[in-house]
């Protein structure tokens, strides 16, 4: 179980980029993290990995894996302390593999760290797990000889070599074409189930979340504005922002060609409004929204939204 408690990430001598974020991911569960560009999704995931770039730090809160505090530990320190592992795959499979090393070398490097006693067949086994055909041959290939989809599979294999309790996937399919995207998503779901691994799946694409995730967290301006199971969230969003995002999804039934949009733009870190950060763009906002702390509103099951005036749909008769 990965638990993130009140995580704060800040730029040194600068603004907070991630503010007070909390969530949990149970084994075998996929949490979808959605939000507009710049809302802090990647920063959250790099913070969990211990991979924030110099100048950006975790300045509050904690990250625990099965109870062990791993907050400020970089991956190699986590290995040295033998604590739980989080692995990650990234958006750009084209640039995420070292161009001058063979797939075998890059894979074995991870195996040697996490599974020092594994035999030479382990690398093949991993490629088989991620459904790379002709694994024996592909092991000797260089990254530039593989397609984008294959490279992303290799990235997943490298992540699995770390035997992670949790896999973070930061927009892993954005750079892939639609059919390949579906295959990779299917693979992630399958590995999550078979290895009983938690997954944090980051995306802009609510459609993908609906298909893949068990639970969803919606991020806005560095904060989570709503957390819920997939069903309730898509059926009855509580937060006006989530509601707006869903309204932006094309609805094939109504055949409505006009795109809905949320007016205005998301605030940048350092220029975030007082009170509820969404209030300037919110059509339900009132004076109370513009200052002071915002209470949590609870819905059915485990649905929580941070909002004064949540959207309450009329229950269908």
């Amino acid at each position: 179980m990965l638990s993130v408690e009140n995580l704060v990430v800040s730029v040194r001598r600068g603004p907070e980029i991630v503010r007070d974020v909390s969530f949990e991911i149970a084994p075998g569960e996929i949490l979808g993290l959605v939000g507009e560009s710049g809302s802090g999704k990647s920063m959250t995931s790099l913070a969990l990995m211990g991979l924030l770039s110099p100048g950006i730090d975790i300045t509050g809160g904690a990250v625990r894996l099965d109870g062990t505090d791993i907050t400020h530990l970089q991956p190699h320190q986590r290995v040295a302390r033998n604590c739980g592992k989080v692995a990650m795959i990234f958006q750009e499979p084209m640039t995420s593999l070292n161009p001058v090393l063979r797939i075998r070398e890059q894979l074995e490097e991870a195996i040697n760290v996490h599974d020092p006693r594994a035999g030479p067949e382990r690398a093949r086994e991993l490629l088989d797990m991620v459904r790379i055909p002709d694994a024996g041959h592909q092991l000797n290939a260089y990254p530039h000889e593989l397609s984008g989809g294959m490279r992303q599979r290799v990235m997943i294999a490298i992540a699995l070599a770390c035997r992670p309790q949790v896999l973070i996937a930061d927009e892993p399919t954005t750079a892939l074409d639609v059919t390949v995207q579906r295959q990779v998503l299917g693979l992630i779901r399958e590995l999550c189930d078979s290895l009983h691994m938690g997954v944090l799946f980051i995306t802009h694409d609510l459609g993908v979340v609906a298909q893949l995730a068990d639970r969803v967290a919606v991020m806005y301006a560095g904060k989570l504005c709503e957390r819920a199971d997939v069903g309730p969230l898509f059926r009855a969003p509580l937060h006006p922002y989530t509601n707006g995002l869903l309204a932006c999804l094309p609805d094939p039934e109504s055949g409505n060609a006009a795109f809905e949009t949320i007016p205005g733009a998301a605030p940048r870190p350092g220029a975030i409004p007082e009170g509820c950060p969404f209030s300037p763009r919110c059509n339900r906002a009132q004076e109370t929204c513009r200052s002071g702390p915002v209470p949590e509103a609870h819905g059915p099951e485990r649905q929580v939204a941070v909002c004064h005036f949540p959207v309450r749909q009329e229950a269908p008769a």
């Binding site: 190699h76 592992k85 161009p99």
Partner: peptide, 15 residues
């Protein structure tokens, strides 16, 4: 600053 260096770090190999 390349992405693949982040990948290498993520593996947990020594700096």
């Amino acid at each position: 600053r390349e992405d693949y260096i982040r990948t290498a770090r993520a593996k947990g190999i020594r700096p």
